[in-house]
Structures are given as structure tokens and as C-alpha cells.
């Protein structure tokens, strides 16, 4: 059975953490179509988390077409997450690895890399608006 975790220091709202974990597990293949997600009560007892938060996360997953509730049986993974074909995914990852190696060679540490990505993303977002 899939188990969620919570990082209270991350600053990411708990419901989003749950949604992200499902998305990420789908991308990594840890979750597949047909898998059952734990019941709201199970997640609540496991993480000491507000039940409404779990319900909200599951609604969001349903809204994204990634999960669906079957009455009396629970919530199941119904979709797959493929923002890009496996080939595109592979190519993007390869170019990212090249870039990270360049950054490393230029002496940037992890924090600097993260800051640079955040700045670039922020600028792109503003250009789109």
C-alpha cells in the first residue's frame, strides 16, 4: 500500500505535498493505474493530519484525472502521468544533467543552482504574463 509522508519544514501546504507525492510516484513508476490509495482514515491516523486536507488532495487528484473513487472500495489510480513522451523525458533529463555538470564545473553549489533555477523560472513566468 502506498504511504504518504509529510515534511512540516518544507513550507509546501500539506495537501499539495500529498498531491505531489502521487504525481512524482506516477512519474517514477512507484504507482500504477489500478493501485489503491490508502483511505482518508488511514492517512489521517498515519500522519496525524486533518481529514479535510486528505479529502482535498484526493479531490485534486480526481480533478486532474489521476485518481477516482469507487464507492465502498476506496480511491484508485486511474490515470498515467506523461507530460512528455518517454523519449522527450529522456532527452530533457540528459540535457539537464549536462547543464548540472557545467554548473558543477563552474563551482556552483546546490543552493546556487536552486536559486538560479528559481530566478530563471520567475523571469519566464513574468514574460508569459
Amino acid at each position: 500500500m502506498f504511504r504518504f509522508r509529510l515534511d512540516s519544514a518544507s513550507g509546501v501546504p500539506p495537501y499539495l505535498q500529498l498531491v505531489h507525492q502521487v504525481r512524482q510516484s506516477l512519474l517514477l513508476g512507484y504507482l500504477r493505474e489500478g493501485d489503491r490509495l490508502p483511505t482518508v482514515k488511514d492517512v489521517v491516523s498515519d500522519l496525524a493530519i486533518n481529514p479535510n486536507t486528505v479529502v482535498k488532495a484526493y479531490r485534486q487528484l480526481e480533478h486532474e484525472g489521476l485518481a477516482g473513487g469507487k464507492p465502498g472500495q476506496g480511491t484508485f489510480i486511474t490515470g498515467t502521468l506523461s507530460p512528455a513522451t518517454p523519449d522527450t523525458h529522456h532527452a530533457l533529463r540528459a540535457s539537464l544533467e549536462r547543464w548540472l555538470r557545467d554548473a558543477d564545473a563552474a563551482g556552483l553549489n546546490d543552493d546556487e543552482v536552486t536559486a538560479l533555477i528559481a530566478v530563471a523560472r520567475n523571469d519566464m513566468r513574468k514574460e508569459k504574463v
Binding site: V40, K41, V44, S45, D46, A48, I49, N50, P51
Partner: peptide
């Protein structure tokens, strides 16, 4: 603390 909060949240869910 965690045990207490688990019980509390489980009661809220129930």
C-alpha cells in the same frame, strides 16, 4: 504528541 494528534484527527475523520 504525535500519538495524541493521531487520535484526535482520527476522531475528526470518524
Amino acid at each position: 504528541r504525535l500519538d495524541f494528534m493521531r487520535e484526535l484527527m482520527a476522531a475528526a475523520a470518524d
